[in-house]
Structure formats: C-alpha cells, structure tokens
Design a protein around this nucleic acid. Structure first.
Lengths: 202, 202
DNA sequence: TGCGTCATGTACCAATTGGTACGCTCGTGT
DNA sequence: ACACGAGCGTACCAATTGGTACATGACGCA
C-alpha cells in the first residue's frame, strides 16, 4: 500500500492546519506569477521560487491545471477586493471615485497584478470552454457595480449599461497603454480627458 | 563537412526564388497563429498544420525565435495595413472614419488577428529588452496617425495627443471586451456612446 | 553522363515538462 | 517504547520540446 495521496479534494473542507499551508502557497504562487508571468510557468521553477519541491505543489493541488485554476481564482479575488474597497466609501462624487480607482489601478505596487489580469484574459481567450467562467467573471464582476453606480447616478438602465461598459473598456485600454509604454504622465492626461468627457466637468 | 546550414541570415537579401516559399510560409504561420494562439506553439505542430516538417521551418528561419519575430513583424504589418487603407479615403468626416475603422476591427474575419495582437502585446510585456521594439511599434504605429488626424482636425498638439491616446485606448478596451464577451451589440452601443462623447455629436 | 547544390524527410539528441514511486523523518496516540 | 500515518524529498518516467546529422532526392550545368 504505502500510498501517498491526499484524500483532500483540494477545494473544500479540510481547513485542518494545512489549509494554512495551502493558502500561503497560493499566495506566494500568485505573487510569483504576477512577477514572472503565467506563460512559461513550470512547477519546478515555481516550487524553487517559493521554497517547496514541485512534488509538494502536486501534493497540495493535485495537478498543474488545478493549481493554475486556484491562482486565477485568487488573483480574481484580489482584483475584486481592489474594487469593493472603494465602493465602501460614502458620499464621494463619481468623478472622485473614478480617480481613486484609477490611482489604485495604476499604483506601481499592483502593476504585476494588472499585467497578470491581461495575461489571464488573453490566456482564457484561447482556452477551452472551462475558461468561459473565468472570462465572464472577469467582465461581470466589474461591470455589475459600475452599472449599479451609473443607475444610482440617475441614468436609465440602457444608458447605464452603455456608459459602464465604455468606462470599463477605457480604463482597461489606458491601463494596457500604461503597462506597455510606462508613460504615466501621458496616460494620466488621457484619463483626465476621458473624465472630462464622461462626467461633463468643465 | 556535408553541412546543411543556410547562409542566408533570414531577414534580408536572398529574395532568390525561395523568398516566395519563405513569404508563403510566414503567411500561413500568421494565419495559423491567429487561429490557435502563440502560447503553446510548437514547430512540429505548426509545421504539420501548414504542411512542412519542423525541420523546414528551422531551415528557412534559423530558429523558433526568429520565426516568431517574423510572425510578429508580419502580423504588425497586417495591422498597419488595416489602418492605412482607411486614411486614404478623402473627405470623410472623422466620425465616419472612426466608425469605419471600428467596423473593420470588429469584422469577425479579423478576430483572430485582433486576438493575436493582444497576445503579442501581453507576451512582450513579460519579455526581455528586445521586446521593447515590438511594444513601441504596437503603440506609436497607431498613435502617430491618430495624433495627425486630431491635429488636422484643429486641436493644439497637447490636446491632440491626449485625445488620440484616449481614443486608441478606448477602442482597444472595447475590442478586448468584444473578444471576451462576444456581445457585439452591447459593445457597439458602448462605442456609439463613446463617439457621441468624443465628437460631441448630439 | 556525371557532379554539385539545394530542398526535404527521417532519425536522432539533450533538455525540460508534468506526474509518480518510494522511502525517509518526524510527531502523536497508546 | 513503538507503531503508524502524514509531510516531504529524491529519483525516476514518458512525452514533448527546439535543434542537429545525415541520407535521399531533384534539378541544373558541364
């Protein structure tokens, strides 16, 4: 017999002391992936980087695919957190919220995370049907609160959807620009231009 | 001795009858890559797909890296062509040009090409310093004519740069939205909203 | 006809990949 | 004290990778 096998089925239950270990591994993995990309990731290199043998990664996550899924999940969670942390603030004007969000997204500290977002997105585009869930989450998680904000700001639902979609797309486009050019000043200026058009500030 | 080696140095000169073959191979390669992505590309699979042995790919291009470089170059060229083909038209209003460009970019026939653009972009983000050239081309090739158009439309240079940058980012963001959601109607509506804000049409 | 050059396929190579087998080392319950 | 099970590392595996060696043609030129 002498079998290894975790009978743990990864995702659920069993938060019994090694849940910590798992969680810490995922965290470290996301950090590493944000820094080095997801494309040429190998279990061995990842393991070496975060201080475990690749054997342990398979032990805890079952397979590379499952580990990747968990990395994506955790990364999505971090992005969502970024958003929800903003909407909590009361009584801000929409422009200020937008500016705040923008500043947070363009914080150099989270640059890796943003790059990872695009990487996951592009990656999922090529992936099979199981990637659809990821893609949907990537869009709706952001679209929903934005639509809500627009509706609250007093726009009919159709217009709110249009505006939310436009805003999200523009932010992402500018974010990609910033990542590729690194020209913060230029991109910030473009963002200000957008805010002027979008909120009609003069 | 009995050596194989092409002394051709790939890129230049030697358009001597096999330039055709090379060019056709690059073309087929770009098509294949647009359809299947660049991430899990292998010389063997690519070769099988376009009807040559992976040996031939190396023979004609020297290495996978050089082949990839050429694919990227050709892909960029196609994108640029897409743009220049539009600016030739005389006497169109900016809104119409924009709408035309948008329709061309969102043509399902070029969807693979657009996806490839994002893939190359994301890929280059993680790449070494040789990728900088690619990234710069990816931005300036588009930004320049847009800035020119804005300036011609009567805006001071600073504003023209801001507006061009904003327009490009928004188009790309919406394009990414379209690729991930496939919701053409919704994205088109957002685009119309943008054109209204951007050109002040009522 | 014979020779050389180029295009191409087949067979191979070392390196790297995800995943597995197995054995060592502890901490803990009895 | 001792057995046992979980956590872990080492050594391994087959598959796939980019790249190379070599043989085999086809074609042109003498």
């Amino acid at each position: 017999m002498a079998n290894d096998d975790d009978g743990r089925s990864a995702g659920e239950a069993a938060r019994g002391r090694d849940g910590d270990r798992r969680a810490r591994l995922v965290d470290a993995a996301v950090d590493h992936v944000a820094a080095h990309g997801i494309a040429d990731l190998s279990l061995r290199r990842l393991g070496a980087a975060i201080g475990v043998s690749h054997r342990m990664l398979i032990h805890y996550f079952g397979s590379k695919e499952q580990l990747l899924a968990e990395i994506v999940r955790e990364s999505e969670r971090r992005q969502r957190d970024l958003l929800t942390r903003l909407r909590l603030e009361p009584g801000r004007s929409p422009v200020d919220v937008a500016r705040l969000l923008w500043r947070q997204l363009t914080d150099p500290a989270t640059a890796g995370q943003e790059r990872l977002f695009f990487e996951i997105n592009v990656d999922a585009l090529r992936g099979g049907p199981e990637a659809v869930r990821v893609l949907e989450g990537l869009m709706t998680d952001w679209l929903e609160p934005l639509v809500a904000a627009e509706t609250a700001g007093g726009a009919d639902p159709a217009a709110a959807r249009r505006r939310a979609r436009l805003g999200l797309a523009t932010v992402r486009g500018l974010l990609l620009d910033l990542l590729t050019t690194g020209d913060r000043a230029g991109v910030d200026a473009a963002m200000e231009e957008f805010l002027r058009l979008y909120y009609g500030t003069e």
